[in-house]
């Protein structure tokens, strides 16, 4: 491979810009001092204990996990059949339909949030939880459509036809052949969707209320009031969990396939 010094330096710079701030957070989390400061004063695990015993964090963590799981399942239930219809069906205006499913990617989330707030909560009188769930589902739909669509596009349509020719009806051919081939795509879509929902701030910020708050929003509130390493410890825990999930994903499906899916 030919050396490309400019590209290589930019890549290294990119990594530094991304990783250095994260390292600061991780290091401060182990501080023994009372304020969020670098370099940290001493070493202790007290702030981790403080984080996991802090009720607002733990309650909102559970809320966030439920919300992410619920929105992911809903987005897949809506998005996967839509993707299959778009890719394999003989429907007119495929491009338009796909565009509609992908649009949450480009419409600013605050706008989506505001629209949902006005229409669903004020207009229809839906509660926060349902509105948040719907909002997050819309947010994740592009992932469901794009990632499963990519693995569907890679799959040879003749494989399903082969099953039909051997005597399987359309439903059986789908269940025994197409669905197993889509599994890595579904897994990737679910993973990305889950992480996206879990990390989302703008939508959750607009649609929250006192009963139901997500973890990122709670953490945001927290930094505005108290400036101590508890927040760094919580962030580090989330980071650790994300790394674990990423490693599992890499082992089972592989990043090339997950992210290859998005870049299609």
């Amino acid at each position: 491979m030919r050396a490309r010094p400019v590209a290589a330096s930019l890549a290294v710079l990119g990594y530094i810009i991304m990783i250095v701030p994260i390292l600061f957070v991780v290091v401060t989390a182990f501080s023994a001092g009372r304020t969020l400061r670098f370099p940290p004063q001493g070493f202790s695990l007290t702030w981790f204990e403080a984080a996991v015993t802090y009720d607002p964090f733990m309650e909102s963590l559970v809320s966030s996990l439920y919300l992410a799981a619920g929105a992911t399942v809903l987005a897949l239930l809506l998005g996967v059949p839509a993707t299959i219809a778009i890719h394999r069906g003989k429907i007119p205006g495929k491009g338009l339909i796909e565009g509609l499913f992908l649009s949450p990617l480009i419409v600013p989330e605050l706008v989506v949030g505001l629209a949902l707030y006005q229409q669903l909560m004020i207009g229809l009188g839906l509660d926060n939880l349902s509105t948040l769930l719907l909002g997050h589902t819309a947010l994740l739909l592009p992932y469901a459509v794009r990632v499963t669509g990519a693995s569907l596009a890679l799959a040879d349509p003749a494989v399903e036809e082969a099953a039909r020719g051997l005597g399987a009806g359309p439903v059986r051919a789908f269940l025994t052949v197409t669905l197993p081939l889509l599994r890595p795509g579904l897994f990737s879509a679910a993973l990305l969707g889950f992480v996206t929902s879990f990390n989302n701030v703008p939508l959750s910020l607009l649609l929250q209320d006192r009963e139901f708050r997500t973890l990122p929003v709670t953490m945001l509130d927290y930094v505005q009031q108290s400036y101590n390493p508890r927040i760094a410890a919580m962030a580090t825990l989330i980071l650790a969990a994300t790394v674990v999930v990423a490693v599992i994903a890499e082992r089972t499906v592989g990043f090339a396939r997950i992210f290859g899916g998005i870049n299609q």
Binding site: D156, A158, V159, A162, G165, L166, G169
Partner: peptide, 17 residues
């Protein structure tokens, strides 16, 4: 439909499962 015809087809891409 193909599943009612009882024909065997070998695709150019083989289309193995």
């Amino acid at each position: 439909p193909p599943e009612k015809r009882g024909l065997g087809m070998v695709f150019q891409s083989y289309a193995l499962f």
